[in-house]
Design a protein around this nucleic acid. Structure first.
Length: 243
DNA sequence: CCTATGATCATCT
DNA sequence: GATGATCATAGGC
């Protein structure tokens, strides 16, 4: 069943324990659906109910994982303790966020692909639209600590539908204000980023399939999403670059 | 709804 | 030097 955005949502505000993340990504991923990721920044609070995630495996196991060939500077956080954010920059303009999984030293995680913004829609929208040079000064999009949306995501005069605010991994990162400086942030402490128990989804409502935009390991069904949820991103196979 | 294309750069080979 | 865990836009139906 599709959850209507306007329906009241009853969630648990208890934070998830670090031990939740210290398991195989393929176990953690489906159990993340329905959980709530919160980021309190100087500009305000945005909370996202996760509706779509992907598991990425340990070195040597999963050719699609950033850790497949071992540790590098970029993926170093994935080899750190579980329950931290791994945020990476890609395509020259986008950030995407993962939860680090498995015990420290392993190198695995879960990509956060999509969700529903359940708090801070106004701030998330402002981030998406980016800083706009208003005639009378800077916008209300948050302060300098908040990362502005990439210029290309602006729709001058257009409006982003609430359902699209976190529909896709780079959009989700923009909505939550995640960028380079959030790589390595702990989600299981007293910091500004937390994961709440939320409203875990019954397994009967979870669907699985191949991961989006993945070339190697393209048939591994490690994508998990809430069946029928309108905030789940569309499936797209990997496309080699044209020449 | 759908498919095609370009943007843009850190990272790895 | 090639590529990518993407997205916005343009155009067709």
């Amino acid at each position: 069943m599709t959850r209507m955005s306007a329906e009241p949502l009853t969630v648990s505000w208890r934070p998830l324990d670090r031990s939740f993340f210290a398991r195989r990504p393929v176990e953690v991923a489906p159990e993340l659906l329905g959980r709530v990721l919160v980021h309190d920044s100087p500009g305000g609070r945005v909370a996202v109910r996760l509706t779509e995630v992907e598991a990425y495996g340990v070195p040597g196991e999963d050719p699609a994982s950033h850790t497949y060939r071992g540790q590098t500077r970029r993926n170093a956080v994935m080899f750190g303790p579980p329950g931290h954010l791994y945020v990476y920059f890609t395509y020259g303009m986008h950030f995407c966020a993962n939860f680090v999984c498995m015990p420290e030293g392993t190198g695995a995680g879960v990509l956060l692909r999509a969700g529903e913004v359940i708090a801070g829609v106004e701030l998330a929208t402002a981030r998406r639209n980016g800083r706009r040079a208003a005639p009378d000064g800077p916008s209300e999009a948050g302060d300098a600590k908040d990362s502005a949306a990439p210029a290309r995501s602006r729709r001058p005069g257009g409006v982003v539908a609430p359902r699209d605010l976190a529909r896709g991994p780079a959009r989700l990162a923009v909505a939550l204000g995640f960028a380079r400086e959030h790589d390595g942030v702990d989600c299981c402490g007293d910091g500004p980023v937390r994961v709440l128990e939320g409203a875990p989804v019954d397994p009967s409502r979870i669907r699985t399939g191949p991961r989006v935009g993945v070339a190697n390991g393209k048939d591994t069904p490690w994508r998990f999403w809430i069946d029928g949820d309108p905030t789940v991103s569309p499936y797209r196979p990997h496309q080699p670059r044209s020449r």
